[in-house]
């Protein structure tokens, strides 16, 4: 697995996907403590120093990836993460976009994150969970080829393989 801290940003038509920097801490904190945005996320303490420390620790790792989705003027719009790596399998999460993000920015950001994982980093399966209440995101993942493999009282547990991603991606890439 390549050292991710040197990778070049992925450039899309509307957004770029780049590595997170320590200077993104305030943006991330604002996003993750927005009550509307963080409803279905693990809670983040509203503490900038702790967010900075989190990112500093992240920068020492070589088995996690933290991306910023930015617009073409390099203004941050959202986040996406890869973690829980085990061989060719990972967990994708922390997909958040700020209020006012355009639909094309949201869609392309999600597609670039998957492209990074499956095409650039060589992963073969994303195993992740989504709160059952988060119906729109549940629907989105089903549309893009993910399958529910288990559930409990509050979460659906999804898997999407690289093959399934490739089978479903074109509808959305063509829409951009």
């Amino acid at each position: 697995m390549k050292n991710t801290h040197d990778f070049k940003p992925l450039e899309g038509k509307y957004v770029n996907l780049r590595e997170v920097e320590i200077s993104d801490a305030a943006f991330i904190l604002q996003l993750r403590t927005n009550p509307k945005k963080c409803r279905f996320l693990h809670k983040t303490e509203n503490n900038l120093d702790k967010q900075i420390e989190y990112l500093k620790r992240y920068k020492t790792l070589d088995n996690e990836w933290y991306f910023i989705i930015e617009d073409k003027q390099h203004q941050p719009l959202g986040t996406s993460r890869i973690y829980n790596v085990s061989g060719k399998q990972y967990t994708g999460g922390s997909w958040l976009m700020k209020e006012g993000s355009l639909p094309e920015e949201t869609l392309e950001g999600a597609l670039l994150a998957r492209h990074m994982a499956f095409e650039k980093l060589g992963f073969e399966k994303d195993c992740f969970d989504v709160r059952k209440e988060n119906k729109k995101v549940v629907r989105f993942h089903k549309m893009t080829g993910a399958k529910i493999v288990a559930e409990d009282d509050i979460d659906y547990f999804f898997e999407i393989t690289r093959d399934a991603y490739n089978q479903h991606k074109q509808l959305f890439w063509d829409a951009l």
Binding site: M97, S101, L102, P103, E104, T106, L107, K136, V137, R139, F140, M143, L171, F172, D174, A175, L176
Partner: peptide, 27 residues
């Protein structure tokens, strides 16, 4: 409820039920 995810859901609905492909420009 009309947001990015709704647009994507509508795209998939139109493609699956009417064989109509749409773009963000259409929306």
């Amino acid at each position: 409820e009309w947001d990015s995810l709704s647009i994507m859901a509508t795209m998939a609905f139109l493609e699956k039920n009417f064989n109509v492909k749409t773009t963000m420009k259409d929306f």
